[in-house]
Amino acid sequence: MEPSAPKLDIRDDDRKRSLRDQPWWFYAIILIFIWAAYIFYARENYNEAFQFIKVGIGVTIKTSLISYAFALILGLLAGLGRISKNIFFNNLARLYVELIRGIPMLVLIFFIALVGVPMLVDGVNALGVWFTEIGLGFLGTPLSAFGNKSLTMNTRAIVALSVTYGAFLAEIFRAGIQSIERGQMEAARSLGMSYGQAMRHIILPQAVRNVLPALGNDFVAMVKDSSLVSILAVRDITQVSRLYAGSTFRFREAYITVSVMYLSITVMLSLLVQVMERRLSKND
């Protein structure tokens, strides 16, 4: 430290810079939240809308969490497939990723929930009939009785979101694994580890750590995209706010409320991701 530096000028400079460095955008968001809290509390229409729509928060969170958990598993498998030397798994994973990425998410959700799932049910039924025919009635009867009705729209929405996001997460996992130096795999193999052991104990722990922020960002994205399942009449906050708006014609109240709800969830999650990112970079 140089004590001889002209202190006064620096302090002036600091003050200017500190004003410029303030996260004004974040203060604006806080202001929005304060304003929203006020109108939800004080204005009767908004209060009514809030009470009506908050019923859907549970569905939104549950759908997002369960779908994300399945998407993580699918994504990891497909990501491993993408880098696999096995031609079958490699191409299967690539096909999956390309199919999903090439179709709009809205169309995919319709397709998986209204075409894909029923086709799967038909397949299970056919399997049941076949089991009965070859004399395995105890297996066949429940399988052929398995109907479309036993899969609610909520379940189908989760299937659709999982399958869609699994493809996105696959690319994140693939990038994470490929970001690890080749020498790591070679060192592990030179010690006698199998490919799978090296993946599990050496490569994946490092790869997952590297992509944690990206995985977090995709979770935020999935929370937002979960609003698309409202088209399946799943009563998440989007669907409930549509219902509210439709029955009361209070569009302003309905959509301000639902927007603030999404914003508070996503801002909170984004902050968590940032904290996580900072923690990780500190450890390096």
Binding site: E181, G183, Q184, E186, A187, A188, I202, P205, Q206, R209
Partner: peptide, 9 residues
């Protein structure tokens, strides 16, 4: 190895 290749985690 030349570059050690220790497991950094």
């Amino acid at each position: 190895f030349q570059l050690f290749n220790l497991f950094p985690h």
